[in-house]
């Protein structure tokens, strides 16, 4: 393990261990507070508004979302841990936009100072880069969305806002789908997913209206299963299961 480290190994290892311990403590405490604060607003709406929201409504909706994205709650932390390391994990999952912003920032910083990923210098460079990215990100969100954006929406004519509200979903979703397909570059899962989604929309839903609440979740679950069954076995052979 220690063979990759340069000269003053013990001193360097001790101070990196201290860095790890400190960031783990700071990171987990700040993230816990962040978690509580991000749930405080919804809790306030749930308990203190007159919107007649029942626990049943929230459960139903959470189950539908969990059936769609629940597997990612576990997969994403597992996927990013080897790349980010423990210190940056607590930053990344609070700041968000990991793959499109934080990872590129970390890589640029490492190449700027000529440090390799996974080395001690590389780790510190990555953490500093994420700090830099976080500072820019928070500031631009506060100024351009919090202040300017809010003001802008009050100035735009209401009929334009109405149109934007009515059509934002198709305007976003088509682009998001293409972005996901192109960035993942996996032909078989893509064909499976689109095929199953078409079946759901045009064959199953017209006949079984009752599944409409869970239609996306069902498409997701069956896409995972079918994609696994029709996977390219040549590509996956090296680690094929039992």
């Amino acid at each position: 393990m220690a063979s990759t480290t340069p000269v003053p190994a013990s001193n360097a290892n001790a101070s990196m261990a201290r860095f790890e311990a400190q960031t783990t403590r700071y990171g987990s405490i700040t993230m816990s507070i962040g978690l509580l604060l991000s749930l405080a607003g919804p809790a306030y709406i749930f308990f203190f508004s007159d919107l007649q929201i029942t626990a049943g409504m929230v459960w139903l909706s959470l189950v539908a979302v969990a059936a769609t994205f629940g597997v990612l709650w576990f997969v994403e932390p597992l996927t990013y841990f080897p790349i980010l390391g423990s210190a940056a994990m607590y930053q990344a999952f609070m700041i968000g936009n990991i793959s499109n912003k934080l990872l590129p920032a970390a890589i640029v910083a490492q190449s700027t100072i000529g440090a390799k990923a996974g080395t001690k210098r590389g780790d510190l460079a990555a953490v500093m880069a994420i700090c830099g990215a976080a500072t820019v990100h928070l500031t631009s969100l506060l100024i351009f969305v919090g202040l300017l954006g809010t003001w802008l929406v009050t100035r735009i004519p209401t009929e334009v806002i109405e149109v934007a509200r009515l059509y934002i979903l198709p305007s976003l979703m088509g682009a998001v789908l293409v972005q996901a397909i192109v960035s993942m570059k996996q032909l078989r899962p893509t064909l499976v997913a689109i095929g199953l989604a078409l079946c759901m929309q045009f064959l199953i839903l017209p006949n079984f209206q009752s599944v409409s609440m869970f239609s996306t979740a069902l498409v997701v679950i069956f896409s995972i299963l079918v994609s696994w069954l029709v996977r390219d076995r040549k590509k996956f052979r090296t680690n094929g299961g039992q």
Binding site: I181, M184, Q186, T190, L196, V219, V220, S223
Partner: peptide, 11 residues
């Protein structure tokens, strides 16, 4: 994740 995300957005 690939299958889940593409399936969700397709649907």
């Amino acid at each position: 994740p690939t299958a889940a995300l593409i399936a969700a957005f397709s649907s």
